[in-house]
Nucleic acid binder design. Structure first.
Lengths: 231, 231
DNA sequence: TAATCCAAGATTGGATACAATCCTAATCAA
DNA sequence: TTGATTAGGATTGTATCCAATCTTGGATTA
């Protein structure tokens, strides 16, 4: 690839984080990224600041930019806010979707289903996220989408950190879509809340309880050979 | 003032927008801001991008950065999301606040009350916003605070654009605090939703219905003598 | 007159050079 | 050996220069 604009770089880094190619606490050195995209550090800095605004990375002055490493408490906050926004969102769209919108949801369900059977759990998780995002999009209110996009991106990082059981309650999505289609707003709302609680419960918070609290701690433990995009 | 760091600049611009010294659609020329803060354009650019991430300003490539000018639809989206987040927030804190937290809320109410009687409606609006923010803070979940801070900042811009009746339902806040104190979660939730709907209803969306849709339109109308921080 | 084209000014976008800061590791002394 | 000190490298932060783009206004021409 030759040069790239800021949007390309933004998408590339965000995708790399979501696909766990960049794992939590990894350092993102500006010059390395700049060279690999054929640009100077300036646009890279802009992108990293933008990602910092979405809490996907953490900028530590004069030290560097690191992929976010949410604590257990932060992870629980993410899921709590997801329940607030998604419960309201699914209630809002219930019984209000067009045939075309419903078929878009249905298509995402099919893709998620086949990703499961093809043994690609990471892809399945991302398609699951897209299902939730689509509902937010269909509310017609941009804030449902904007905030949920941020929260779902963080959910991917949380899953990268704290793992996830294989069984992803795929059937919940199907039932959710039926309730939306039938206009059962209250039931859809309750199911969404339950669904998100179940996802949160499948995370193994205690297992990696010794997960790094601070970033400096990480790199001290690794004795200088810390994880980096250079490696 | 001599030099300034990014945080100073960020706070100064944000305050200027909130206090309506910088009105919607005004252009923020990087070099002008840089000179007035004694720095180069670089940190100013960073701040403007950060504000753009919060939707307080709009960056148009190769044209400039302008104070946000929300449309009626966008304004209604802001209030809808405020209802979602604040209804959940006030329900969450009801009956859970310490004596100290309640007195913090009470103090804000007193300040708001005196700002009203001192004929400073702008200050009263800001103190009202702080009251709502404090509740979000007391949820203990950072996302309530982060998202609401963004939405309330935008509310100030919306009020600057679409005006507001003098009578601000100051008594709602008092009743809200009582319900929180007494642990009447459901009643507090309902009152918060009603309160926010009333605020939205006092906005005069139709009057300034000829409000500028696009920024370029604004400056065409003014025939070159457009509003600017230079002026 | 009216429309088109071009040039100049203003502003932002990006690349580069340098300053500030942090971390590491070697050196030295107790 | 252990601790403090310091020099070097690595990385980010800032300033400055130039390029890209947009807008305006005047000149030119039909």
């Amino acid at each position: 690839m030759g040069v790239a604009n800021e949007l390309d770089i933004y998408i590339a880094i965000k995708d790399a984080i979501i696909q766990q190619k960049l794992r939590p606490s990894m350092q993102l050195v500006e010059e390395v990224i700049a060279e690999s995209f054929g640009v100077s550090r300036t646009p890279v800095r802009n992108v990293l600041r933008k990602l910092a605004g979405e809490k996907l990375v953490t900028v530590i002055p004069y030290k560097g930019t690191f992929v976010a490493c949410p604590t257990v408490e932060e992870a629980k906050e993410v899921f709590e806010m997801r329940r607030v926004i998604e419960a309201s969102g699914v209630k809002k769209v219930s019984g209000k979707l067009t045939r075309d919108q419903l078929s878009q949801l249905s298509e995402l369900l099919d893709e998620e289903h086949s990703a499961h059977h093809n043994g690609d759990p990471l892809l399945a998780v991302r398609l699951s996220g897209n299902f939730h995002l689509k509902i937010a999009e269909f509310t017609g209110n941009n804030y449902y989408f904007r905030y949920l996009e941020e929260l779902i991106s963080l959910t991917y990082v949380i899953i990268a950190l704290y793992g996830m059981s294989k069984h992803m309650h795929c059937s919940d999505h199907r039932r959710l879509m039926l309730l939306i289609e039938q206009g059962e707003a209250e039931q859809a709302e309750r199911l969404m809340i339950e669904h998100l609680k179940e996802i949160e419960d499948t995370l193994q918070f205690e297992e990696k309880g010794t997960a790094p609290q601070t970033l400096s701690e990480v790199f001290r433990l690794a004795n200088g050979h810390y994880a980096s995009v250079k490696g």
